[in-house]
Design a protein around this nucleic acid. Structure first.
Lengths: 213, 213
DNA sequence: TAGATTGTTAATCGATTAACAATC
DNA sequence: TAGATTGTTAATCGATTAACAATC
């Protein structure tokens, strides 16, 4: 295995996609796949697939290809999906609930342990079987529980303040849905989901297509 | 203005981000900005900012920089945010509601006109002031209304079927939240928000950081 | 005019693709 | 063994950065 820190983000972002298709094949009972076949399915070139995988080691076998089950597992290991991650969600609106729901159904290692909100009407309610706690208790909750990931589905105005508390509380990663850029120390990982940015770029291509007609 | 079709997606994805910061400056009453200042704020190099903008024309002025208000407007125009987009949401769970909510508050040109679901308990309800309609009526609704964007917040299993109906109904863009890749004809734009992929890549970096300590 | 900063060309860097020897 | 397909090096392509002449 190479020095992981040199592997580009572009490669890392493709891994979950490979894994998604391998999961599919695995379920369908396919047990081997060549980089060429995989290429046709996932839409990257066979060469790129081989390059990507060889950043982490030789998972294939000449003349045979890749074992689907094994490659699926290996990619999971690379991503760290063989572990559990404890998460808290700050902001219990529809988006926060949607995420809590999703991770609950989709039996994965990402476990929502706590949900927090400032709204007194929500505090104490059970959302998706998880009690909504008072945001004021977040600090003490983080002190008592070893939380890996903080999910920010709170409003833009409070997002940085929430972030600071989460970082202070020892989370190692932040998944941000607020439409702004947060600052975090270097040892904390930040991943943004900027929905409006995504929608705006969609608008661009819609117009481009229209103009071409 | 150059041939838009040659502009890379990387550039397009940066535009909403520029615009976001310009909006901020504009609100704070700043009226000019140099590529150097902008660089410090948005985090791309000044060189890249100038390159990006010059794909679409010369918006700056030598010795002065860029006019904040004007550049903000121009980027909006490039993205097509000076128009309105009619949207339908298929799948009225938390995620669908979150999006309906967001676009309603955030006074933009993206208007949710209809929401659709298969669940009889939801049909007829008003969610965020928009009536939830029977999914079976989607075809006729699309025939009668000129819808630009279809938002897929339905489950994975129905996502492709929903897509086909939306395409058949004449939408020009699809914003997909289902955790799978859809096939659409070339004239329809597809933008995916693969939340689990995003979370999985976050997991990778969390582990990398941990291992480095 | 002098200083500042753009627009744009040229240089560099990195990522993707092609090619092929190694080997199952 | 012959055929297939990987792992890996080399070539290409594209995107980012640097540099600077143009010009406000």
């Amino acid at each position: 295995m190479r020095d992981d820190s040199k592997i580009s983000d572009a490669v890392i972002k493709r891994l979950p996609r490979y894994r998604r298709y391998l999961e599919d094949m695995r379920r369908r009972g396919v047990d081997r796949v060549s980089s060429n076949e995989l290429s046709r399915i996932v839409g990257y070139t066979a060469s790129q697939i081989r390059q990507d995988l060889n950043n982490f080691g030789g998972f294939g076998q000449q003349g045979y290809g890749y074992n689907v089950e094994s490659l699926y597992e290996q990619i999971g290991n690379i991503l760290g999906l063989n572990q559990e991650y404890k998460m808290v969600i700050v902001g219990t609106g529809n988006l926060g609930q949607a995420i809590a729901n999703y991770t609950r159904y989709n039996k994965s290692g990402f476990i929502v342990c706590g949900m927090f909100d400032v709204n007194p009407e929500l505090i104490g309610l059970r959302v998706n079987e998880i009690a909504v706690r008072d945001y004021e208790t977040l600090n003490s909750y983080l002190a008592e529980n070893d939380i890996d990931i903080g999910i920010i589905t709170a409003g833009k105005d409070s997002a940085q303040e929430v972030t600071d508390r989460l970082v202070e509380g020892g989370v190692r990663g932040i998944w941000n849905f607020a439409p702004m850029d947060l600052s975090v120390p270097a040892h904390v990982v930040l991943r943004n989901v900027h929905l409006s940015d995504s929608l705006h770029s969609l608008a661009y291509y819609i117009n481009r297509n229209k103009n071409q007609k």
